[in-house]
Design a protein around this nucleic acid. Structure first.
Length: 306
DNA sequence: CGTTACCTGAAA
DNA sequence: TTTCAGGTAACG
């Protein structure tokens, strides 16, 4: 559920409220152990309790709590996760799976119907962030950087934009929205974009992410902010889950098709498919070597066991 | 590369 | 009862 704008909304809300607080306890509900990705509860607790939270960062869809020990408490909300901050105790939230208590008595509650979310404490955030591609809304996210993530790819544009190793933070909602704004069909090969299309896509991604944050995220179903309040972006989507509704621009009914295993929503008129065959047989396809070693960070050494 | 699995509840 | 879901790791 939560994509970059939703995770960023939570981060911004939470940061001033938990920075400087010390963690006093960790509770993992039975049946939610798996969310600790194989690390025993007592070990996670030992890394967390009595640590002070210095700040919260975000990379892609990951929330990163910096601890005074130098370690990082890392969470990923996956499909149905939410992080609630409760100043007081009181009733448990529905589907509350992991609870972290702070020294002011408040609680951070990781709520997650499907239990796909992850919760871990790592020595370095790199273990997780080194796998991620360009970060939108940073200086590094240029039109050229975007193109370097796409060029040479034959896979559908939609799938490539969902690939967190290429570009971090986009999910199904914001990819569909960005493709609509850029007037690009989701199935076109990612590497086939012409310069004007790359420019349009770059601008569209920035716009939908900014808009999503401005509206405090999209609450189609489970997502709420740290106070349990819905975002408003679901009222502003142009195509996502608007199958058969008329396109705001041209009135043509929005179509839904599955691309790369994900539901995709698009306007057949505003986002025309590429001309399939040009009737001009090409002699031989040139092999565009996937040059550029811009994989950036070194991910080779995963985790040093000690 | 495109499927399948991981879970659970809501909607069709 | 069946299908679908905002994500991603693990398959073949």
């Amino acid at each position: 559920m939560p994509e970059l704008p939703e995770v960023e909304t939570i981060r911004r809300d939470l940061a001033p409220r938990v920075a400087g607080r010390t963690i006093t306890s960790l509770t993992v509900m039975p049946g939610a152990k798996r969310m600790l990705v194989g690390v025993p509860t007592r070990r996670v607790r030992a890394r967390l309790v009595d640590r002070r939270i210095e700040g919260i960062e975000r990379r892609g869809k990951y929330l990163l709590f910096q601890l005074d020990s130098g370690s990082v408490w890392v969470m990923h909300l996956r499909m149905t996760g939410t992080l609630r901050h409760r100043s007081t105790g009181g009733e448990p939230d529905p589907f509350q799976r992991i609870v972290v208590t702070l020294d002011d008595g408040s609680e951070l509650r990781f709520t997650d119907v499907r239990k796909f979310g992850t919760f871990e404490v790592l020595e370095s955030a790199e273990e997780v962030t080194c796998k991620l591609g360009i970060e939108p809304l940073t200086q590094a996210f240029t039109e050229e950087a975007l193109w370097s993530a796409l060029h040479g790819r034959k896979a559908p544009l939609k799938s490539t934009l969902l690939d967190q190793r290429r570009i971090a933070g986009l999910g199904n909602i914001y990819v569909d929205e960005a493709l609509f704004l850029a007037r690009l069909h989701p199935a076109v090969p990612a590497g086939s974009l012409r310069p004007a299309e790359r420019r349009a896509l770059h601008a569209a991604i920035e716009e939908v992410i900014r808009e999503g944050i401005a509206h405090r995220g999209a609450s189609f179903r489970d997502y709420t902010d740290a106070e349990g309040k819905d975002g408003r972006q679901q009222f502003f989507v142009r195509v996502f889950r608007r199958t058969d509704e008329p396109c705001d621009v041209c009135g043509t009914p929005i179509r839904r098709t599955v691309i790369g295993g994900r539901a995709s929503h698009w306007c057949p008129r505003c986002q025309p498919a590429r001309q399939t065959s040009r009737r001009v047989p090409r002699k031989r396809a040139r092999r565009s070597a996937s040059i550029d070693g811009t994989d950036g960070v070194d991910c080779r050494r995963k985790e040093r066991r000690r």
